[in-house]
Nucleic acid binder design. Structure first.
Lengths: 159, 159
DNA sequence: TAGTTTGTTTAGTCAAGATTGAACGAATTG
DNA sequence: CAATTCGTTCAATCTTGACTAAACAAACTA
């Protein structure tokens, strides 16, 4: 039983981290970044040392260093340094998912702009192609406007 | 002037297609698929022959074939065959953007499931890690529910 | 049927970028 | 100060997958 407690379901948790890695990769991000995120999600400590992450995921210190900095740029994790401690720690950033969602709105805005740019290139007023771009622009403009509203509603509901 | 009409702003349109290609690539999709989509967006004809796309984008028939089939799987374009015509044509699928948005909801659902799976792995009831996953699951569950509502509102507004 | 004109498939090339390992620098400890 | 323990950086490797070109298949034409 002592062994069981020490293990603490590591195997399945590592598997979970791998799952998140694959999901991340499917979204066009580095798999290792997803693995780190996945591990942080199920590690039952307030924060984790970079080095431990490398060991647990069987990865090099280098990739952990690089990918954790990527996750920081994305606003999903943050660094924690403890006084009188040599090691660096990372943890999930509280409220990071809302922040992630906010960046989705930005992406949507970029697509709206793209459609607008396309519209400028159409010289004929013919409805065929113009309609398509207008539909695209309108949808993304709509979403761009509604995403923040949605986010606000969720934040309110959360309390 | 004749030349100008024939050209029809091809240069800037090709540039636009390239832009969409880069945007697509940034989202983790093949650049060529984005280029095709981009060209369809600004080509002022109801449909375009596969072969013409290959020529205009300076790409091989092979990649156009493969990537247009990818775009079809994504529900963004569709094939058009004309009676007594040898060539195959493609065009943007009407209403494809709404469909695309619907698939976003599916992705969100996958993330909610991931969070749920993670929660199953936590044996301690300690709030530290559990809270994080609960927040994640709640947000995605919320979005999963609200996306279709949003879409419905847009469709209604559109008329 | 033979000859074209198309799209598809497949093997191969190539580039991008994820990952590693080693060298490095900074900070800490004895 | 020497030794240790970290994280970071960088060159090298390796893998993935986009893309091409050529062979192929299918549909049409004469």
């Amino acid at each position: 039983m002592a062994k069981k407690t020490e293990d603490d379901g590591q195997a399945s948790k590592r598997h979970f981290a791998e799952d998140v890695g694959l999901t991340f990769e499917a979204e066009g991000m580095p798999r290792m970044a997803g693995r780190i995120l996945g591990w942080l999600l199920v590690s039952e400590t307030p924060h984790v040392a970079l080095q431990d992450v490398a060991e647990i995921l069987h990865a090099s210190k280098g990739s952990i260093s690089t990918m954790s900095r990527l996750l920081m740029r994305m606003g999903l994790i943050e660094r924690v340094s403890l006084p009188g401690e040599r090691r660096d720690y990372i943890r999930l950033k509280p409220g990071s998912w809302s922040e992630w969602f906010a960046t989705e709105a930005v992406k949507i805005g970029a697509l709206r702009q793209l459609a607008e740019h396309g519209l400028e290139l159409l010289e004929s007023k013919s409805s065929v192609s113009r309609d398509r771009l207008v539909e695209m622009r309108d949808l993304f403009a709509f979403l761009e406007q509604e995403y923040p509203v949605l986010l606000e509603r969720w934040k309110k509901k959360r309390r």
